[in-house]
């Protein structure tokens, strides 16, 4: 069977055209970490808030083979939205503040400093039905998984018409099924 090479293969040009990933291209292209990407803070959120947001994003959809850059790409548009809309800014800052407060009450440290994912998940479960969590998750399920750069890592090849489909590229190449 023809397997899928998980390395990045999407051209920078087509990546730049991807709507979901438009904002944080600089971070992705240079492979910046959370610290480096947001040392100066965002348009509306502080460096600490942005770091917590990335941590929350990873805790909602944890994929250990994905670098932070994908999560940064996924949540970065929130910063822009918050800059243009006070209600969004309030939703985010208050949601993040509550998480940190809950974290300090239980673990004496901020959310992002809690060592075990399982402990952070308990805090997220407690806010699962808040508008903050619901908005973040609903957006993230698109903004994370709709990044063409991460598709090959999930064994998904994306568009195929421009390559002539799969007629000669393995549409029926399965070779392990038991004989019936």
């Amino acid at each position: 069977m023809r397997e899928v090479d998980p390395r990045r293969r999407v051209s920078r040009r087509s990546f730049l055209q991807s709507a979901a990933a438009a904002a944080p291209v600089a971070a992705i292209a240079t492979g910046l970490s959370v610290e480096e990407a947001w040392a100066e803070g965002g348009a509306a959120l502080s460096p600490a808030e942005l770091k917590t947001l990335v941590k929350v994003a990873r805790d909602i959809y944890p994929h250990d083979f994905l670098a932070d850059t994908y999560y940064i790409a996924a949540v970065k548009p929130w910063d822009g939205k918050a800059a243009g809309d006070p209600a969004t800014k309030q939703l985010l800052t208050e949601g993040l503040r509550r998480l940190d407060e809950d974290a300090r009450t239980r673990h004496k440290v901020a959310y992002a400093q809690i060592g075990w994912e399982a402990d952070r998940i308990v805090l997220l479960q407690a806010i699962e039905h808040t508008p903050f969590f619901k908005a973040l998750r609903a957006d993230l399920v698109v903004s994370l998984y709709n990044q063409p750069e991460l598709w090959p890592k999930f064994g998904y090849e994306g568009p195929s018409a421009d390559k002539g489909g799969y007629l000669h590229r393995g549409f029926n190449d399965i070779d392990w099924l038991p004989k019936v």
Partner: peptide
């Protein structure tokens, strides 16, 4: 595909099981 699988596999689902 991956984008729609994420949206429809278990709508609202999150965390390690998802």
């Amino acid at each position: 595909g991956i984008p729609f699988m994420a949206a429809f596999l278990n709508p609202g689902g999150w965390g390690r099981p998802f």
